[in-house]
Amino acid sequence: MSWSGAEVSALAAKAARGAGAPAGQAALFGQAAALHLQQGRGAGALAEALETLPEGPIMDLPLVLQEALPVARSGGEIDVVWAGDVALAWSYLETMPYRCDVELERPGGLKVRFSPRSDARPRAQRISGCEELLHKMATLAAKTLVPDSAASRSGGAGAGLTDND
């Protein structure tokens, strides 16, 4: 079975929220997670990131992006200091709307060159071979769902009238 990038992104974002990440960081993790898997960078870093909440890369990598943003906008190189999984950091950097080439990958960080991106985002690749991670994400995502109730059902589309009209 293969998955679309959009559904993995949505699932990863919900999983991060379910694991305790604030909404903004969770959404960013969702984007990065899909890119990460599409690039074949391995599911382990994503699972670990979810496990280490409320600390770890899901909380820290958004701050790395904050630091990189001015350079990314103007184009140029930056040394990204990052002691964690550099592949995951790379995936986060690629969520920005700029072309991002990693010139040097090393323990403790990356040297990155930013340049303007062409018009469109690259075509998303299908995601497969990470069922265990996706199952884990689904379990965490379920923690964000509110149990069904009569009161909640009464407001949805189609509620309150016959549909055989």
Partner: peptide
């Protein structure tokens, strides 16, 4: 846009 495994919009 990718729901239930259909193609991503991209």
């Amino acid at each position: 846009n990718g729901k239930f495994g259909i193609a991503d919009r991209s």
